[in-house]
Design a protein around this nucleic acid. Structure first.
Length: 773
DNA sequence: GTGCTCCATTTTTTT
DNA sequence: AATGGAGCAC
């Protein structure tokens, strides 16, 4: 229906567009046809999107429910919607806004039947999917040590995002054993998901495409429903996302994409930068609007960002500029280790907070990997700094929550085998691994679902004592399923379920700090259900479960909470803070080091660094350590090459000195140095009682502790050829490359990446290694 | 079938 | 440092 109203009091005034610069105005008012907005960092992109949608509504181009806006997080969608509500009125609540995954899961709920799924399908997160793949590999008798489920999972996910079906996969990729295995697993995996009435994250994108291609009527229905399609963060869409939006918009051709190729940082999950680079090839009549004025950062910060991104080869032409002043220079913090680093950051936060009169929520600390947050948290607690941690192990991934969820998912969908197996013996009720395996094999042989076999367990040859337990379990679940259908209160039902299943008792009996935490988490989860029930007009367990499957970490970021934000650089996309610390700027951390099956895409790492820099409004700090605990062991760290790449004119050390950079860092033997040696802030020694750098080394010139990160080179000068980067051959493992080196003298260990065997850690003294020239 | 201890492996990044 | 799996004793 096209009828909708604008509430007169909040309708846009004539001055609606006045606050926009000419480029922004153009992006807002160019309503029809394909449009590419190349929005540099901090160029007011969200504002443009918001106004653009408001403008479409105001100009009666479309009703709210005819506009589809795909954002990167649910939070972004929510906020944008609220802003539009303020401009246009309550009708804006009808807009279709959300992440790709949440919007299409909503559509799939309606159309599931056409695809042979039930409406109450379960969404498998990455760990559910991994469990299933592990299970399949086991059934196929592969050793999980040799064939890592994770590897297969990545390959399948890649295939899905490229819209490669199992059939196509087995035709296309033959020869390599890994591909052969993937082909087999992929085929079974897909069947299993369907039998379990479950979809993984990729399916939420791929299945709509399948649906639209198989059924032109359904496609047309959605083409007509979504007369205007907008996509934010277009540089991070993958092929499936590209395809599905292309299908949706090809009738009305009102596709507006916004993005910045310089900020493309998700290629590891299939994001394809060429989507944005080729937009104008795909749509020859596409209009392009660049947003180049930056409203966020000082000139120093912008200059720094620009100098970094210029090191990359391919990018769309654009130059960001700002009217702001240079502001403060960027400060480089040089630390001994990560504890030192965390303390220094904490001290700076307190100092700046007092000096500038700003709040904790004006600060963010950004890092490359989640595990770096731990030391920061400790330091912040010591310094009485409130913080909010975004990311890492999220609430919904905790074991106890996943368990409760498994029970609930099983109520909604009895065929969800992965979750059934997860909790059939949790708490233990005498149904052990043997019985479970028997049940699965037997069900597979009879060609029936596991749940259906359990329903008639008496007729099977399952281990006798287990039968009784299974019967009780099945009856219990069926009982709850009935109350669910009878519209029982959800949170109450959950409580009873946890009670009757013995799950709560199990935690109560445990009497540990751990189990107390788990119980608290579960109570918090029940509160979340209550809240959902209250707030929803017609709440359903199934909808609730689907919704929380798609909650993202950044959705819980609260900019008004008076706390310092700790998050990964990935998580910080789209956000801004007056003061930003980028920590852990070290080789093999940021940029990350190579791993088996994964080459480092250095350009992407550089874009990631670019994203980190451009989060900052006023002050920016870079930080690195010369030593860091990794794998529970102290490791030497080399300063990140990125510090050598930035425009040095805007960076100062803590003492205000200009920073020294090496342009020929990988050749240099120069040991001159104008740094002072960082001091240890604590002398906690390892259990062996040794501190590496204090031990006289066998190699020459070790003690000439020169500029940070140079140690590795000095160490390996002279007659020791086993330097980082050297090609080596091992008697058993074959050809490899030295990735890192720790310890000294007879304790020297090297991590070698072998072409055929992956990464191994070896004692240099003992390993049969020799150098290849 | 359960539960404990020892060990190996992990640490990109996320919907 | 922390988790999960394998192997072993009960």
């Amino acid at each position: 229906m096209k009828s909708f109203t604008l509430s007169s009091d909040s309708a846009p005034k004539p001055s609606f567009l006045d606050g926009l610069n000419p480029q922004q105005k153009e992006a807002v008012t160019h309503t029809d046809g394909p449009l590419l907005i190349v929005a540099g960092a901090g160029s007011g992109k969200t504002r443009v999107l918001t106004f653009r949608i408001a403008y479409l509504l105001q100009q009666f181009k479309a009703a709210p429910q005819e506009i589809l806006a795909l954002t990167f997080t649910n939070k972004a969608a929510r906020e944008m919607k609220e802003r539009i509500v303020k401009l246009i009125g309550d009708s804006a609540h009808q807009l279709w806004m959300g992440t790709f995954h949440s919007v299409f899961s909503r559509i799939l709920r309606v159309e599931a039947q056409a695809l042979g799924f039930g409406k109450d399908f379960t969404i498998y997160d990455t760990s559910d999917a991994e469990t299933l793949i592990k299970q399949i590999l086991q059934e196929l008798n592969y050793d999980p040590k040799q064939i890592k489920p994770r590897t297969i999972q990545y390959k399948i996910s890649d295939a899905k995002n490229q819209l490669v079906t199992p059939e196509l996969f087995s035709k296309k990729f033959i020869g390599s054993t890994l591909d052969d295995i993937t082909a087999k697993v992929y085929k079974i995996y897909k069947q299993r998901l369907k039998e379990s009435n479950a979809m993984d994250f990729d399916d939420l994108l791929v299945l709509p495409i399948q649906l639209f291609e198989e059924d032109p009527d359904i496609l047309e229905k959605y083409q007509d429903r979504f007369r205007y399609v907008l996509i934010d963060e277009y540089q991070d869409t993958n092929h499936a996302q590209y395809k599905v939006t292309q299908l949706l918009s090809q009738k009305h051709r009102n596709l507006c994409v916004v993005g910045d190729d310089a900020q493309s940082i998700y290629s590891f999950r299939g994001a394809d930068i060429s989507n944005i680079l080729n937009f104008q090839n795909d749509y020859s009549d596409a209009h392009q609007v660049p947003l180049e004025q930056n409203y966020r950062s000082t000139k120093s910060i912008l200059k720094c960002a620009d100098s970094i991104i210029k090191k990359n080869e391919k990018q769309l032409e654009k130059t960001l500029w700002t009217e702001k002043d240079y502001g403060e220079p960027i400060t480089l913090l040089e630390n001994y280790d990560e504890r030192d680093e965390a303390n220094r950051v904490a001290q700076y936060i307190q100092k700046i907070k007092g000096q500038d009169g700003i709040n904790f929520n004006d600060f963010a600390v950004l890092y490359r990997t989640n595990y770096q947050s731990r030391v920061l948290e400790e330091a912040f607690r010591r310094h009485k700094i409130d913080y909010q941690l975004i990311g890492g192990l999220s609430f919904y991934q905790r074991k106890e929550i996943k368990d409760v969820l498994a029970y609930l998912k099983l109520l909604v969908n009895p065929y969800d085998e992965t979750n059934l197996i997860r909790i059939i013996n949790e708490p233990s009720r005498g149904i052990g691994q043997k019985s479970i395996n028997d049940i699965r094999t037997s069900a597979r042989q009879d060609g029936i679902k596991v749940w259906d076999l359990l329903e008639q367990v008496e007729e099977t040859t399952i281990y006798r004592p287990a039968k009784q337990r299974i019967r009780e379990f099945v009856d219990m679940m069926n009982g709850f399923r009935e109350s669910l259908q009878a519209q029982a209160s959800l949170h109450q039902l959950t409580r009873e379920l946890l009670d009757k299943s013995g799950y709560m008792k199990m935690l109560l009996d445990e009497q540990s700090h751990e189990s107390l935490m788990r119980r608290e988490n579960i109570l918090e989860f029940i509160n979340a259900i209550s809240y959902y029930e209250k707030q929803q007009k017609n709440p359903s367990l199934s909808a609730f479960l689907q919704e929380i499957s798609l909650i993202t970490d950044s959705d819980k970021f609260d900019e008004n909470k008076p706390a310092v934000t700790l998050m990964t650089v990935h998580g910080s996309k789209g956000l801004e803070f007056p003061v930003v610390f980028v920590v852990g700027l070290e080789e093999n951390l940021f940029p990350v080091g190579a791993k088996e099956g994964f080459d480092v895409d250095i350009e992407e790492e550089r874009r990631l660094f670019y994203v980190a820099i451009t989060r900052a409004q006023e002050r920016l700090y870079f930080s690195h350590c010369s030593s860091r605990f990794k794998y529970g062991e102290e490791q030497r760290q080399m300063r990140s090459r990125f510090i050598d790449e930035v425009d040095a004119s805007v960076v100062r050390t803590e003492t205000g000195a200009t920073i020294r950079q090496r342009s020929d860092r990988f050749l240099s033997t120069n040991t001159s140095n104008d740094h002072t040696r960082p001091t240890r802030s604590s002398t906690k020694s390892s259990s062996s009682g040794t501190i590496e750098y204090d031990i006289p080394s066998a190699g020459p010139s070790y003690k000439s502790y020169s500029s940070l990160g140079k140690i590795d080179y000095d160490l390996h000068e002279g007659n020791d050829p086993f330097v980082v980067g050297a090609q080596v051959v091992h008697q058993k493992f074959g050809i490899g490359k030295i990735m890192s080196r720790t310890g000294s003298g007879s304790q020297t260990k090297v991590v070698v990446f072998f072409k055929d065997r992956g990464q191994k850690k070896l004692m240099l003294q003992a390993a049969p290694l020799s150098i290849i020239d």
